[in-house]
């Protein structure tokens, strides 16, 4: 579904991704793990058109989407739930959700809104509250629901568990598992490597802007280097 070939990304003259190859197949959940600053977010931003691609190719459903504008990437069917949630702070929860459906013109948007609030009951309670006043966990649920409102074919999550209490992290993991069961294709970036590898069908390990290891979730969970450096036992 998504294919990345020899991708290089940089900020100004500094290159931070040095030619990576990865693939996400339809219906899969693929995880990207790695240390801080390894270049996971930069890869996602390049896919979504937030930072320019230096060289290489991004293909989505057979179509070249390299360096497409951000809004066109969304129209193609890719939605990202960004690092740090990035809700619209002064808009109410419900307006944030409606923004998620910005590119849609169909008649089922209100029904989807209802579905999202069934899936995340806390959002119904907070429907008219400014999103900036929600707790971190609530904001994460909102960001996830907002991303789903676009009815994306590929859903990208950047560190959904960042800064959340263990109980909420488990809730986020359960939510992503549910989204996967809904048949969505998922690309997941996580610092919480164990959670990511348990959820993922396949995973890639990033180190300093390169992919150094890849395999199924189980394979990486038991790979000695991953265990030593990222799973800490």
């Amino acid at each position: 579904m998504l294919k990345i070939e020899d991708l290089k990304v940089g900020y100004g003259s500094i290159e931070v991704i040095h030619g990576i190859n990865l693939e996400v197949r339809t219906g899969e959940c693929v995880a990207l793990i790695g240390a801080n600053g390894a270049g996971k977010s930069s890869t996602l931003k390049a896919i979504c058109g937030l930072v320019p691609v230096k060289s290489g190719k991004v293909t989505f459903e057979g179509r070249d989407i390299t360096n497409l504008s951000g809004h066109a990437v969304v129209q193609a069917g890719i939605t990202m739930c960004p690092e740090g949630r990035q809700v619209f702070p002064q808009m109410s929860t419900i307006k944030n959700l409606r923004m998620g459906a910005y590119t849609r013109r169909d008649a089922e948007q209100e029904a989807d809104l209802d579905r999202m609030m069934d899936m995340f009951p806390i959002l119904r309670d907070r429907a008219h509250q400014a999103a900036g006043t929600l707790s971190g966990g609530e904001q994460e649920m909102l960001a996830i629901a907002r991303a789903l409102m676009a009815r994306p074919k590929l859903c990208i999550f950047d560190e959904p568990s960042l800064g959340l209490a263990p109980k909420i992290v488990a809730e986020v993991a359960a939510t992503i598992a549910r989204i996967k069961d809904m048949g969505k294709t998922i690309l997941l970036v996580e610092q919480n490597s164990l959670m990511a590898l348990r959820l993922a069908d396949r995973a890639y390990l990033f180190e300093a802007g390169e992919i150094v290891l890849s395999g199924t979730g189980e394979e990486l969970q038991s790979h000695p280097e991953v265990v030593k450096a990222y799973l800490g036992h």
Partner: peptide
């Protein structure tokens, strides 16, 4: 709403598909 969204968080607005 897109105007508000861009004012509040430009990058997030792009991720919603706002041009």
């Amino acid at each position: 709403q897109a105007i508000r969204a861009v004012a509040e968080n430009r990058d997030a607005a792009i991720l919603m598909g706002v041009n």
